[in-house]
Design a protein around this nucleic acid. Structure first.
Length: 504
RNA sequence: GGUCCGUUCGUCUAGGGGUUAGGACACGUCCCUUUCACGGAUGAAACACGGGUUCGAUUCCCGUACGGACUACCA
């Protein structure tokens, strides 16, 4: 089995493309096959610098490494279509010689006018007889134009009156009537192939056995079958699978890159542009990585968006996905992009990670904030916060008070809970905490509660204030766990500072 | 408009001729917790509609509606 992921480097890699890559990858791994990355950069007008690097880095981040392809070697290269340009003309000419294709000299502008003038104008068996092509022009005229270097394209010659059957592994049999098909351009005037030609030639030359791609390709698959037939490659024609599309979280239509900004959610694996690259401000997008997602969570979320093996399992490690994956279980209908579910997966994945691994993720985030702390402390923070964060940056944002003094005190709670007459008790408490040893959570908790009772206070009255003193907020880890993590002197320091705040 | 593809709780889905139509996210309630969360329990919530076929259809067939993709010298 040889499969390929063939994105076009026109910008950031859409999350739907990532899912296509994932499904290709899973199938390849499951069958001990080969996963190939081919870059389809045949449209020179839409080429975006940095997009190819972005695609590769995205696959790396997600751990979906190709076995062959641009940046990964392999003996079926080159894997970038612009580097294969000479190949395509040769094959297009072959089709012309076979009578399966023809030269067309009509300019894009002429055809545009034709479309404006006629409703539903299609370049096909009906209209090609009064257009300028090698089917209507005399041999001498054609040769003359060719020698003169007149711009021309090569079009597929679709024979009418045929039914074209496609056996889609997801959708079953799909039938198209050749009368409905247009004579697609195969080779453009600039000498570059269109998707259709390049795709078929490359899939054939690269020995692709299974094509797994988005549903938007289903309508043109009939043309692709015609090409395989035209070349005489039907025996080795790959099996097709057309994936359902990923839809907008709200409203109608498929998920688009603008939806990210519109709904305030990431729709790309990584932020665009990559560091060091530039892009116009309206083309800046946040990625899942930068939003604080773990790659495993993104993969798990994406895998289940349009596929489920049956049963009740929700959490799948990559190797479990490899085991469980099958094309038959892919849904046929489009799947709405549900960011809430993505968040849940991330939360789960963070919880599943051990503290020291989590520490390695938090370290750069902490460094960014200027927090210089040990790995050991980072691991402690991880343990304290991992049950209450959704995104990686939450560790240093929600839990900032574990790295620096409290910035914001919850005034409302203070006003509600604090009574000035408790000042002496609180002062005594500070002294008690300052000398308590060993400074360990369970012991400290029991001792403080007892101390408060001895002082004639109710622990329930003072404990919330203690929390406010340490964190400034009513949300957060267990009070005494925080105290121990912060250390005895810092804890005492915060209690003193807080007491002044309380009485202010 | 034409061609093609779809349609199970709000969302992602399981299921499949006879089920109390299952799970997950989100949401409500309760428990745990002198916080927040995690966790546990529980609740509300779906087979688009109309015809067939059948003893019986959510499941099979046909229509309709709705949604989607495609309809470029873009992929």
């Amino acid at each position: 089995m040889r499969v390929r992921f063939a994105p076009s480097p026109t910008g950031a890699l859409h999350i739907g493309g990532v899912r296509t890559a994932l499904y290709n990858y899973l199938l390849a791994r499951q069958h001990g096959g080969t996963f190939i990355l081919r870059v389809e950069d045949t449209d020179q007008t839409r080429f975006v610098p940095g997009a190819e690097a972005y695609i590769i880095e995205s696959l790396r981040w997600l751990g979906l490494l190709p076995d062959e392809g641009v940046g990964f070697g392999g003996d079926h290269g080159p894997y970038r279509q612009s580097d294969r340009k000479p190949i395509y003309r040769q094959y297009a000419e072959q089709l012309v010689a076979l009578g399966q294709a023809y030269y067309a000299f009509d300019t894009a502008e002429e055809l545009d006018e034709r479309r404006k003038a006629t409703d539903n104008f299609t370049y096909n068996y009906l209209t090609r007889s009064d257009l300028q092509n090698s089917l209507t022009l005399s041999e001498a005229d054609i040769q003359q134009r060719l020698i003169a270097g007149q711009a021309h394209v090569i079009r597929l010659r679709v024979t009418p009156g045929r039914a074209i059957h496609i056996h889609d592994l997801i959708r079953g049999e799909v039938v198209f009537q050749s009368d409905e098909l247009d004579d697609k351009v195969l080779l453009k005037a600039d000498g570059m192939p269109t998707y259709h030609l390049a795709n078929i030639v490359d899939d054939h030359l690269m020995g692709i056995t299974h094509v797994i791609r988005g549903e938007e390709w289903l309508p043109s698959t009939a043309h692709h079958v015609l090409l395989y037939e035209g070349f005489g490659w039907v025996e080795t024609m790959p099996k097709f699978s057309h994936l359902p599309l990923i839809m907008k979280p709200f409203g109608n239509g498929k998920l688009s890159k603008r939806d990210g900004a519109k709904f305030g959610i990431p729709v790309f694996p990584l932020s665009w542009p990559l560091p060091g690259e530039t892009a116009p401000p309206e083309d800046h997008f946040q990625g899942f990585r930068e939003a604080g997602f773990l790659p495993g969570a993104v993969i798990n979320f994406l895998a289940l968006l349009g596929w489920h093996p049956g049963g009740d399992q929700e959490i799948f490690a990559l190797d479990e996905l490899v085991q469980a994956f099958s094309l038959e279980h892919i849904s046929k209908g489009g799947a709405r992009f549900d960011f809430e579910k993505a968040k849940w997966f991330n939360q789960k994945y963070i919880q599943m990670l051990d503290n020291s691994t989590l520490a390695t993720y938090i370290r750069p985030l902490a460094a960014q904030k200027g927090y210089a702390v040990s790995d050991d402390y980072l691991a402690q923070v991880a343990g304290l916060m991992k049950e209450r964060v959704t995104f990686l940056p939450d560790f240093v944002e929600m839990g900032y008070y574990l790295f620096e003094p409290v910035k914001d005190y919850d005034r409302e709670t203070i006003t509600k809970k604090w009574k000035a007459e408790w000042t002496p008790v609180f002062e005594n408490l500070i002294d008690f905490v300052a000398t308590y040893s060993p400074f360990e959570s369970a012991g400290l908790e029991a001792a403080v509660k007892q101390f408060l009772v001895d002082q004639g206070a109710k622990p329930g009255d003072l404990l919330p204030l203690l929390r406010i003193a340490l964190a400034g907020t009513m949300k957060g880890p267990a009070i005494f766990d925080m105290a121990v993590a912060l250390g005895q002197s810092e804890t005492v320091q915060r209690l003193r500072t807080a007491l002044q705040i309380f009485n202010n």
